[in-house]
Design a protein around this nucleic acid. Structure first.
Lengths: 243, 243
DNA sequence: ATCGCCTCAAAGATATGACGTATTCAAGGG
DNA sequence: CCCTTGAATACGTCATATCTTTGAGGCGAT
């Protein structure tokens, strides 16, 4: 296999079993606003709704409580917390919101986050990337160019995700690295919902190559600038599409 | 009460009850590395260790599983996941790591994150802040100056936290806003562990005033630049102190 | 014939799911 | 101010599912 086969975009690692099933239904319902802030759910009600026992409901609720989506109080029930308290950085919450009616708000937030983080990550990567990282980055930049020319959107998306994830990881900052999956979700989302040009823009591709070259050369300033151009461009495109 | 009393730094909202107690002990033990990666815990063992029932252990474990700190598999037990999978943005995980032996690594990561995010937030705040935000920001800048001169470290810290949280919130980006508590934890941590000058530096104070003024004036570029100087300075100081 | 290795099936261990009961807390009525 | 009451909370037991281990058997090679 080629050097480019990293596949950093790791498996989903969902929570298993029945609590997972409950979560997959309840979480999106809350995150999308279908169950509004302040709504009160009773445990027993959830048992019936999902046809599971208290054990399962309670475990699922605990997880939601950990994400600050709900709070459970005696004599009151399970209360949906105001949005402002939610753990908006939790990967599950992000995915749920991207899948639901909050999608555009979530994409905007993530867009700004990318503008802040990715250029900084590129600059750090220029300093901290390993030789393997640099080799793979070059390789991905080539793949990106090739698949863009072939207008092969799906594999192009895959390489794009891998590229950005690699830059974030190569920064050497664990928190940046963990945004790789999130960025992947954003890129996937905006492709699925056609929030970007249908043909990858040659200029954007060129910028990706520039980022790769600058990181390989250890030129932090150039890497940061090129990456900033990429992500601000993406944010502008997003704002254009969403009005 | 004065305009400055926002107290955005919301209450801790810990998970309640016995599972919370278990979490408060088990979480830090894992996050600090005291229980190493790959270690396997059995449910029954945890029941004995904490003197609680299975229900409680299982709910606590589910929450840890939601943070990706552990994975629970049949016939094998509860295994501590490799660090690279942890949800490093989870506020609880951050607090646990800041309290434990990972403190310096966590502070470094957060330092870089601040450098990336806070200048961007300041620029956005210059555009999106409400009039109330601007008034309160000015007020906080004054308080900061006064308490710094009085060398009143504790209240100074409080105002510093409120200042940065307010800028993040005023950016209008929910994800930035949620980093307010995290930044608060960082500032508290570095004060507690004496990782900063014992006297607030007059230059840093001046920069805070500049940020406030720029945001009030709607000058995004200046706000961003001043904030960048603040956070890069903090990061450099951190690197100096940690070697 | 003995050793080594592979395959498959039984066994054992552990999480998982469900449920009955008791306790605790807080809201609301007397 | 106390009492009732409703709901979450906590405990313990049982049954089930599923994974890992292990060991028995077969097969080939030396």
């Amino acid at each position: 296999m080629g050097l480019a086969a990293a596949g950093v975009y790791a498996g989903r690692m969902e929570i298993q079993g029945l609590p997972g099933r409950v979560l997959d239904e309840l979480g999106p319902a809350i995150a999308s606003g279908e169950i509004p802030e302040g709504a009160v759910l009773r445990g027993e009600e959830l048992e019936e709704r999902f046809g599971v026992s208290r054990t399962v409901v309670r475990e699922a609720v605990r997880v939601l409580e950990g994400m600050r989506l709900v709070a459970s109080r005696r004599r009151v029930g399970i209360t949906v917390q105001p949005k402002s308290l939610w753990d908006v950085f939790d990967p599950m919450v992000i995915r749920w919101r991207l899948a639901g009616s909050d999608r555009s708000a979530q994409l905007r937030s993530l867009g700004s986050l990318r503008v802040a983080v990715e250029p900084a990550a590129a600059a750090l990567a220029a300093v901290h990337a390993t030789d393997d990282d640099r080799r793979e980055l070059s390789s991905l930049a080539v793949e990106l160019t090739v698949t863009a020319r072939a207008a092969d959107l799906t594999t192009f998306l895959g390489h794009d995700i891998a590229f950005h994830a690699l830059v974030l990881r190569a920064s050497g900052n664990e928190m940046f690295a963990h945004l790789g999956d999130t960025v992947g979700a954003v890129l996937t989302g905006r492709t699925e919902y056609h929030l970007m040009p249908h043909q990858p823009e040659p200029y954007a591709i060129r910028l990706h190559r520039e980022v790769a070259e600058a990181i390989c050369a250890g030129d932090a300033g150039h890497a940061e600038a090129a990456m900033r151009t990429i992500v601000t461009g993406a944010l502008e495109e997003l704002n254009r599409q969403l009005g």
